[in-house]
């Protein structure tokens, strides 16, 4: 009899010593898994940095599971606290990933801003280069006078008695439009001139119409009307003698006077 008692007692003791695993093999496995998970998060410096509370809770639950495992018949409780511990470890990892992503995001955001700035600068410089190139073109087409920078749309761009700008002027007009678009402060005065064929009144009207037709094209191409003044000077201020057809053709012209970069335009004639 007493041998039997000792035997039973020994079995019970062994059970307790083995930490409950004798009664619940699942609980031993759960405990090991929870321990493994906890070990991993505990050793991760980032997890400790971003989710210290979760790690502490995982550790507390694990300790509880561990303690319970020394009691006989507590398998279900061991599994329960091991489960909670594993969940806390998993939550710790998620919180860490979020923290790391926030840091990565901040770095990427700085990088994005840097690149955006660089792109803006490069676009600006390409516009500036384009502007410089156009300015050179305009300067080569225009001459610096005491009235300012003056470009002459002359020669064979108008027929006698006609105000319509010929197509051959298109390229020059387009350059003027681009130049004005790149230099939004500059304004222009468009001055029309006629040869001395026809009467004075008629020439005044014709010269004004010529200037207006150039202005109309600029407006059609998107230049604000307010930036354009239009004047007609009739047959005044000829650039050549009206004696020859060639001279008269030179006098049938439109001159475009550009303001300076600040929009200051020289006085009209």
């Amino acid at each position: 009899m007493s041998r039997l008692i000792r035997g039973v007692g020994a079995v019970l003791l062994a059970g307790a010593v083995l930490g409950g695993c004798a009664t619940h093999p699942n609980s031993e496995q759960a405990l090991q898994q929870a321990g493994g998970d906890f070990q991993k998060v505990k050793e991760d410096a980032n997890v400790l940095r971003f989710a210290p509370k979760d790690v502490i809770r995982a550790g507390e639950s694990l300790a509880r599971a561990d303690r319970l495992s020394t009691y006989w018949g507590s398998g279900a409780d061991v599994e329960h606290y091991a489960y909670l511990s594993r969940r806390y470890s998993a939550i710790a990892r998620e919180h860490t990933e979020q923290g790391l992503n926030a840091e990565r995001g901040a770095r990427l955001e700085l990088e994005r801003q840097r690149l955006q700035l660089a792109l803006r600068e490069s676009k600006l410089s390409s516009v500036q280069q384009q502007g410089k190139w156009l300015e050179e073109q305009i300067t080569s087409l225009a001459t610096q006078t005491d009235r300012g920078l003056v470009m002459t749309l002359g020669d064979v761009l108008f027929d006698t008695g006609d105000a319509e700008l010929k197509n051959s002027a298109n390229r020059t007009v387009l350059k003027i439009v681009q130049f004005l678009q790149l230099n939004p402060k500059r304004v222009v005065r468009i001055e029309g001139y006629a040869d001395n064929t026809g009467g004075e009144q008629e020439n005044l009207r014709l010269s004004r119409d010529r200037a207006q037709s150039v202005a109309d094209v600029l407006v059609d191409l998107g230049i604000d009307e307010k930036r354009i003044q239009v004047e007609g000077y009739g047959d005044q201020y000829p650039v050549e003698a009206n004696a020859s057809e060639r001279g008269r053709a030179q006098n049938r012209r439109v001159e475009i006077v550009f303001s300076d970069a600040k929009g200051q335009l020289g006085a009209a004639r």
Binding site: H80, L84, I91, E94, Q98, G105, L108, E109
Partner: peptide, 28 residues
Amino acid sequence: AEQAELDARLAEAQVLTRKSQEQLNVLN
């Protein structure tokens, strides 16, 4: 209820992690 609470908290954390990852993808 204790297990359900942590299951739910993990589910929430996973969604937030995924969202933060998506934000990174947009930035990239």
